[in-house]
Design a protein around this nucleic acid. Sequence first.
RNA 1: AGCCGGAUGGUGUAGUGGUAGCACGACUGACUCUGGAUCAGUUCGCCAGGGUUCGAAUCCUUGUCCGGCUGCCA
Length: 572
Amino acid sequence: MNKDNPPLSTNFIQNIINEDLKNGKNDGRVHTRFPPEPNGYLHIGHAKAICLNFGLAIANKGLCNLRFDDTNPSKEDIEYVESIQADVKWLGFDWEDRLFYASDYFDKLYEFTLGLIKSGNAYVCDLSAQEIREYRGTLTEPGKDSPYRNRSIEENLDLFQRMREGEFPDGSRVLRAKIDMASPNLNMRDPVLYRILRSTHHRTGDNWCIYPMYDYAHPISDALESITHSICTLEFADHRPLYDWVLDKVDYSGDAKGRPQQIEFARLNLSHTVMSKRKLRELVMEGYVDGWDDPRMPTISGLRRRGYTPESIRDFCDRIGVAKRDSVVDIALLEHCIREQLNQHAPRVMAVLRPLRVIIDNYPEDQVEWLEAENNPENPSMGSRQIPFSREIFIEQEDFMENPPKKFFRLSPGGEIRLKSAYIIKCEEVVKDENGAIIELHCSYDPDSRSGGATSGRKIKGTSHWVSAQHAIKAKVRLYDHLFTSEDPDDCEEEGADYKSQLNPDSLRVLDDCRVEPSLAAAEPGSRFQFLRQGYFCADAIDSQEGHLVFNRIVSLRDTWAKIQKENRSNQ
RNA sequence: AGCCGGAUGGUGUAGUGGUAGCACGACUGACUCUGGAUCAGUUCGCCAGGGUUCGAAUCCUUGUCCGGCUGCCA
């Protein structure tokens, strides 16, 4: 292996594909699909599946389809099919002309089903849902045959056609596969193939009152699209024998090429958040967050609003790998991915989150200097900008301490600090109100210390960001933190407590009185910046506008001082 | 209990009979007009027992632990 061509990241699915390619399986085609059910918003776990399926196709010069698994109209909605398409596109993947719906195949499916009945592999069952459950047996005991199992082919055909015609009420009958009621795999105990369900479908309207089940529709949809590798999550492994049974019994060879193979991988779990659709929905519906796109949500739309880039999410999906074992990925890895990208691309800018007024007494009263500041030291091609300096400025409250502990390299009485891209100042006087709270600082500046000047070389340990008081623009800043305090919100000690008891009360802090440098006045909604020494921030795509700036913190910068403080506190 | 999966540093993931690697995190140090970034380094691992073999994370075997499965959801 040579250093200039590192091996492509590999995983067990790619290994299977390599083997298939070597053996000439499916004529050397690789064709995958991403098959969401349009019943909710996509989250970072779906991003893993999307990157996997589209990524495998790209890596192997194959194709990947987008297919909506829309076989249950009672739960699905056009709102979701639209958001899902937007999210997949935003992530950077292209299904070209291959946008499909399982509902596209309802006619074909019906036709196949007639054949299945004729070959004696399916029957209409009149048992109620409750009875079917009872007849199914348990994990340890075999089930027993339905009394309707041995109906004649003619009767089954007649009944099934009448189900389709709407002669029977919802739930009164189902079509079942005739497999084996004693199978140790419950999925093989004559699973339901079709149910009667009067519900308007978002695509087929009221054309149908019977709808196929996932286990039946999915293998056939895969086959009809000539999918070669049908990738799904672990919990479907028990369904694979049924998937193969359907493919064995249905003759789709006239409509497609090859034969799909189901392969299961472990879904993504992320620390400090939840991933199930049910729980995410609950957080939205019960008002714990402000919607599906709340920047604290692990949804694609939430991450997008927070300020994550598609590149950083794809990078994350590459790094987490693909395997069959359950795992929990540390959310720090996701944060690393966005930091790494934004470090290269985000312009630096100065913003004071909690302002403290500083008056520089020896600086001329009406003078304004425009100083040059580099936009990104990591990327000189991003150039520089001019920022105003004047007699009154704001610095961060945190950057001043009256009685500083050791290792506090910032401003304190009599101490000096470098103002980034400007001058060194010295604290001469602390002004307090009647309650002893610090109102403002009086400082002096060293005129020889101007950044970039010939005499600016004096070394000062600390450097702070600042804004000119008369030029600064007010802004609102939303500081986001992990949605849950515990790594695994589902793992709660107390009896009766659930994941919601682990919600982080400080997952959102709003700062209304921040001051940002004037270059941000017309910050484009959605644009990203590094607020020097603070973190990466994104002008909110919805709430931010000129005259009313709102920034979301995407992720903080690594903060060594915060760590030292934390240690000091725990040592006391 | 029956069936199906799975166990490699703190976390995730490679390695498929020949020196256990990579990434994130943590920790040290260097550097720094961002306590950022960068650079250098350190720490830490094959679930357990038995077997095959010159040699086992890898093959066999026994056991332990963990996950999934009893919707007319997907």
